[in-house]
Amino acid sequence: MEELLLEQSEGVLWLKLNRPQALNALTASLVDALTAAIEGAQRDPEVRVIVLTGEGRAFCAGADLKDSAKRGPDAGFAFVKAIGALTELMEACTKPVVAAINGIAVAGGLELVLACDLVFAAESSVLGDAHSNYALFPGGGATVRLPRKIGVNNAKHVMFSGESLPASEWKALGLVSRVVPNAGFIDAVAMSAKKLATKSPLVLARMKQALNDSIDQPAPIALRYERVLSNLHNFSADRAEGLAAFKEKRAPQFQGK
Rank of each mutant, 00 (worst) to 15 (best):
E88K: 14
F246R: 10
D74L: 14
D117R: 06
L89T: 07
A100F: 14
S29A: 09
S192D: 03
Y225R: 12
G256K: 10
E3G: 03
L65N: 07
P181Y: 08
A100Q: 10
A240V: 02
R206N: 01
A188R: 06
S29D: 10
N153V: 15
E46A: 15
A130S: 10
P73S: 09
G56T: 02
V180F: 04
G40T: 07
V98P: 02
E91Y: 13
A245R: 13
V97I: 01
S68W: 15
P96W: 09
V119N: 02
V144E: 15
L4C: 05
A63M: 12
T35K: 02
L211C: 06
F79C: 00
R224A: 13
K257V: 04
P201M: 04
V31Q: 01
V98E: 03
F77Y: 14
D74M: 08
K171G: 06
H233Y: 14
A190H: 07
E3D: 03
L110E: 01
L229H: 04
V176C: 09
V49P: 01
L243E: 12
F185C: 03
L23S: 03
L204I: 00
A244V: 07
G242H: 07
R239Q: 06
S236T: 11
L112A: 03
Q21V: 01
G128P: 02
V144K: 12
S29G: 05
E111C: 06
A105F: 10
A245G: 14
A100R: 10
A37E: 06
P45E: 11
D74V: 10
V31N: 03
A190P: 04
A183Q: 08
L229R: 05
L223D: 08
E169W: 10
S124A: 11
M191E: 15
K199N: 03
L23N: 02
L136V: 07
G84C: 01
